[in-house]
Design a protein around this nucleic acid. Structure first.
Length: 101
DNA sequence: CGGGTGACTATAA
DNA sequence: TTTATAGCCACCC
């Protein structure tokens, strides 16, 4: 599963995102020491198990939007989880105030 | 080694 | 603001 050491770092970075805040894929990649590897972060998350304890829902794209098909299972789950973190999702967009760490 | 894909991003029109 | 293009990286065939 974790053949790529970068995945563990990515997981750590995501786990370090404070509750109530969100980060972009690019940010996570950068903090993980992988500048420009935003796609790898997305790929990493796509492989996460449904029962993961990782706060994957705190990761959104640079546009401040959820990078999942609108209305999809994961999309709805992410929105719900964010709501519990005090992060409002208005018109499919995350409040800029809570953006970044 | 080459071509296609995806939970990305930045820039241009 | 939205769409198009190009660059990006790991993975699969």
């Amino acid at each position: 599963m974790t053949q790529n050491p970068a995945y563990e770092v990515i997981w750590q970075v995501i786990a370090s995102i404070p509750q109530g805040k969100v980060a972009t894929y690019g940010q996570v990649a950068h903090l993980a020491g992988l500048p420009g590897a935003a796609r790898m972060v997305g790929r990493c998350l796509s492989q996460l198990p449904r029962d993961t304890k990782l706060p994957w829902f705190r990761v959104v794209n640079a546009s401040g939007r959820i990078s999942l098909p609108v209305g999809s299972d994961g999309y709805l789950r992410q929105v719900a989880l964010l709501q519990e973190e005090d992060i409002a999702v208005m018109n499919g967009r995350i409040s800029l105030a809570k953006f970044r760490l």
